[in-house]
Design a protein around this nucleic acid. Structure first.
Lengths: 234, 234
DNA sequence: CGCGAGCTTGACGTTGTTCAACTAGAGTGG
DNA sequence: CCACTCTAGTTGAACAACGTCAAGCTCGCG
């Protein structure tokens, strides 16, 4: 296995969740075959891991770190479809769509990822349909999150959307009500589909009302129930 | 095969596109097995074919008609994720997600559909992974449309969104620049994620400017290029 | 020390919602 | 046949939400 880093930085596949998950469905031999066509890489915060419009040649397993799914618009406005943290298999959403990435995937924290050759992977999928179905379900879950975000965007006003985002980040990304936010205010705006200023105003309001504590990047959800109410009302 | 209609109303599976597509991947025997567990039904305009939140027990092949994918919000506001016309396999989007329909599918025109038992279908998928991959690609395509609609919603103002919708309806639903719209103004609003009044104002504006002709439900796109420009600018 | 990136605030104009009133057509019952 | 009601569509005015612009602030870094 190749890498752009020294051996001591290498994660061992032995410890890998993806391996453990996979070998429930496919043989160790098949997994070894995948492993041989896999490259482990390290990305810095801000790096683009998969580029919108590029050909999809690899599947990506996010071993460590946090990434955003970003759609880059021609008019310069970006939209963040979702944000996910490791461990997670990425590219399922892009995977089956005509070999072209529908959106970019960028590191918002330093990330360790494994690039798996897609043609090798497809071979294995064709041999193991239970494995394929399981991965479809995981990919569908990702779509579901995007669609719920879509719905939030359509029918809630900003404080409802920001509430949604804070809840999502706490629940699904940082897995804690207190977290060190790796997104900028601008990125929060791209996620909420509104202006940076409006994000700031809304967060300040939440802070004044004692719903959250916030000091720069340090966030803590104090009144979780109130946040849920705001999310529901919209 | 059972039906709630007389025999002369029955479509013959022989003529069915779904059969033709499927038998490229699976054996005729396998398809017969699916056929035996399939029920053909007719729905009237306005009927709900699949209900949001209900268990997914069947896959639906839309033989004839037009349907909307609708998300029903707790606050009473609905959102139309997309609108599609026959022939199309529905439920792929719901199919792999935990046996619960994420949204409703409703007839906006009289529809003929076939309900295929999902557990039978899954058996066949497990036996034929090439078939499974192909179907997942089709389901992904559906997601892609929803995501593009999502992006349109996030970053365009109403005339851009209405332009997008008119283009989409002409291109992908009615397959003609002139069409008899089966959606109400309210449904257009749910599709565009705005108020009914705003849809009307925008359509009237397009009419005044000679971009479209419109008489009640009768629509015709006159200046297609201008519509594209409006869509691009937002 | 100065610079730039990220963050914050307020003023102002635009966009879109809500509400209320009105029209046209379709269906109903006397 | 005419009133009645119901629904879909339409219009305008008042108001709220949100984006844009401009200015200033903080902090890390060369």
């Amino acid at each position: 296995m190749n890498s752009n880093h020294s051996a001591k930085d290498q994660h061992l596949c032995e410890a890998c969740l993806f391996k453990r998950l996979s070998t429930n469905f496919i043989s160790t031999d098949d997994f070894c075959h995948i492993e041989k066509h896999t490259q482990q890489l390290r990305y810095k915060k801000g790096d683009t891991i998969l580029k919108q419009g590029a050909n999809t040649t690899h599947l990506v397993f996010l071993f460590k770190g946090i990434v955003k799914f970003e759609f880059e618009n021609t008019n310069g406005k970006n939209l963040i479809l979702t944000v996910v943290s490791a461990p997670k298999l990425l590219g399922g959403a892009n995977m089956f769509y005509k070999n072209q990435n529908l959106f970019s995937i960028c590191a918002v924290e330093d990330c360790d990822v494994c690039f798996i050759e897609l043609n090798v992977f497809r071979e294995i999928l064709l041999k193991n349909s239970r494995y394929a179905l399981m991965l479809f379900e995981k990919a569908s879950e990702m779509f579901k999150v995007s669609i719920l975000n879509f719905i939030s965007l359509a029918h809630k006003q900003i404080h409802g959307r920001i509430a949604d985002i804070l809840i999502y980040l706490a629940e699904s990304v940082y897995c804690s009500r207190r977290f060190d936010l790796s997104l900028t205010r601008k990125e929060l705006a791209d996620f909420a589909g509104c202006s940076q200023e409006n994000v700031i105003i809304t967060l300040s309001k939440f802070k004044k009302e004692g719903i959250i504590k916030m000091e720069k990047k340090d966030f803590e959800i104090v009144d979780y129930d109130k946040l849920l109410t705001i999310s529901k009302i919209g």
